[in-house]
Every structure is written in C-alpha cells, then in structure tokens.
Computed example of a mutant assay.
Amino acid sequence: MTKTIELKGVQQRFHARGTAGGYLTAVDDASFTLSAEPAQVTSLVGQSGSGKSTIARNVLGLQKPTAGDVLYNGKDIFQLSRAEYDDYRRNVQPVFQDPYAIFNPFYRVDRVLWKAVKKFGLASTREAGLALIEESLRAVKLEPERVLGRYPHQLSGGQRQRVMLARVHMLRPAFIIADEPVSMLDAQVRKLFLDILLDFQRDHGMTTLFITHDLSTVYYLGGDVMVITKGVIVERGPVDTVMHEPSHPYTKLLLDSIPQPDPDQRWTDRIEVDELGEEEKAEAKLASTPETPVI
C-alpha cells in the first residue's frame, strides 16, 4: 500500500489577547495530500507568520489541530496504535531550521546518529552500526573522520544540518518534513543541501514537504508548490505554472517582491497584505483545489 499523509480541513487556533474573539487563526481549512509513490517534492511557501511552520508541527504530530484531521495511511495520527506510531515516526522525519539548536552542546554529534541506530534497530552489531553511520555521512558529502567525535560547536552550521540529513539517510523514511532548513546557510551550502534532497528523492524514493519563504529555492527544487497566506492555501500547482502564470494576487505579490539583479533598478515598492475575507477565502479554496487530490 502506498504511504500517504493527508490533511483534511485542518484549522489551528491560538488564544491571543486583544484579538477578535480572543484567538488567532494560524491555519484555516488546510487540505492537501502527500504521496510516497512516486516520490516528489512539494513546497509550501509564504511570508513569515503565514502558518507554514504550524502546518509542519501538525504533520509531525507536535501540535494537535483545533479542527480537521491529519491522516497517515488513512488513520488519524493522534489515534495511532503503538506499532502504527512507531512506523509513523520512522517514516516521517523532520529537518528543522536552526542548525545551532538541534544538538545538545554537551554531547558529541555522534549521539544523534547512534540513538537512531539503537531506537530503530538499524544494526545488530556496533561494527555494522558504525559502517552504516559512515556510509550515510558520505552520502551527504561529509567525511566521517572529520565529523565523528566532534562537539556541535566544532562544526559549521552547514555540517550540522548535513549530519541531520545523514540521520535521515540512515532511516530511509517515506517523508521528509523540512521546515526552512536552508534559511541560515550560505548560498554554496544551500545548493549542496538542496541537491542532497533531490538525490534522496531520486535514489531513495523520499517525498519532501519543503517549507520556505524563499521562492528561488522553490524554483530550484521544482515539483509542486502551495502558496499560503494568513493560514489559507490560496494557490497550488506545478512550480513552473505557478511561477510563470500565477493566478492569485498574493502569489503575484510574492513574485514581484523578488529584487531584480539590476543595480540601476531601485526597489522602492512595499507589499501590503490585507486580511482575507470570507468570500476571498472561499474563492482561494476553490482556485487552489487540485484536479487530483494527490500533489
């Protein structure tokens, strides 16, 4: 059976003083499906505060939605049995934004790799575990002898992020949930990181939900894209189509906000994003509904 992650009408509200009704809606009626076969890259793009990371937490089971369902192979992830939950945890792996905060500074970086080996029974002997770790480090363009035995502060941000990719490589999950994983990396390391994600898709059949505010990385990865603003997914489709023929005003604003590489062209415009009304939300939902439920 093909593994799937499906969001159906997910809404996430948070209590907030001074707001209408006493709450803030971070995600409003979000619905989409990710499929492990064929492996694909789907990007979720929007400005800061648009609800992207909240959706990531919903998908990872870190935040139970106020309404709606997050389904893994058709079952609510918050009602999985122990065996089903273990399968979910192995097959849905996160890569977070901050390469400085994902490691405990008191432990060597080896620890996150050995914990995965032991937790998921990836090797029967220490020698086999070490061989697996070294293989996965090389797969993400790291030299094991220059990484193993070191503390987090002895590695660069790009190296730390790739150690987490090595952990993903060891587990071979069906899905990667990457929440702004390259926003703190320089351009050269950013390209290397994106290339590794594409290698994982091509060589190991991993589907990635790539969450970002950067349209250039979305274009580089290709695949499909969903555009979100104010918690509402307003447009979705193939990257080339959305980038070259955007149908929603917000998508057009995002594209217009990209600075042009022309020193003679001054960037003076400011983007104002208005709150979506109920009628606009309904139109956005209709416009963003794909012809097929799997993207």
Results as ranks from 00 to 15, higher is better:
Glu6Val: 07
Leu7Gly: 12
Gly9Glu: 14
Phe14Tyr: 15
Gly18Thr: 07
Thr19Val: 12
Ala20Tyr: 03
Phe32Leu: 13
Thr33Met: 14
Thr33Arg: 14
Ala36Ile: 12
Ser43His: 07
Leu44Tyr: 04
Gln47Ile: 05
Ser50Pro: 00
Ala56Ile: 05
Ala56Leu: 02
Lys64Cys: 04
Lys64Phe: 06
Ala67Val: 00
Ala67Ile: 01
Val70Lys: 02
Leu71Phe: 06
Lys75Trp: 05
Lys75Asn: 13
Ile77Arg: 07
Gln79Phe: 05
Glu84His: 05
Tyr85Ser: 11
Tyr88Gly: 02
Tyr88Ala: 04
Arg90Ile: 03
Ile102Tyr: 11
Asn104Asp: 15
Pro105His: 01
Phe106Asp: 07
Arg108Tyr: 03
Arg108Trp: 02
Asp110Trp: 04
Trp114Asn: 06
Ala123Pro: 14
Thr125Met: 10
Gly129Cys: 10
Leu132Ile: 00
Ile133Ala: 03
Glu134Cys: 08
Ala139Met: 05
Ala139Lys: 10
Glu145His: 07
Arg146Gly: 00
Tyr151Lys: 07
Gln154His: 06
Leu155Arg: 02
Val168Thr: 15
Met170Phe: 09
Ala174Ile: 09
Phe175Ala: 05
Ala178Phe: 10
Ala178Trp: 08
Pro181Tyr: 04
Ser183Glu: 07
Leu192Arg: 13
Leu194Asp: 06
Asp195Ala: 11
Gly205Trp: 11
Thr208Gly: 07
Thr208Arg: 01
Phe210Trp: 03
Thr212Trp: 00
Asp214Ser: 00
Ser216Lys: 09
Thr217Ser: 13
Asp224Gly: 01
Met226Gly: 00
Ile228Ala: 00
Thr229Leu: 00
Val232Thr: 15
Arg236His: 02
Asp256Ser: 14
Asp256Glu: 14
Ser257Thr: 09
Ile258Asn: 02
Pro259Val: 09
Arg266Asn: 06
Thr268Leu: 10
Thr268Gln: 11
Val273Tyr: 00
Glu275Val: 09
Glu279Leu: 06
Glu280Trp: 10
Lys281Gly: 08
Lys281Ala: 10
Glu283His: 14
Thr289Leu: 15
Pro290Asp: 06
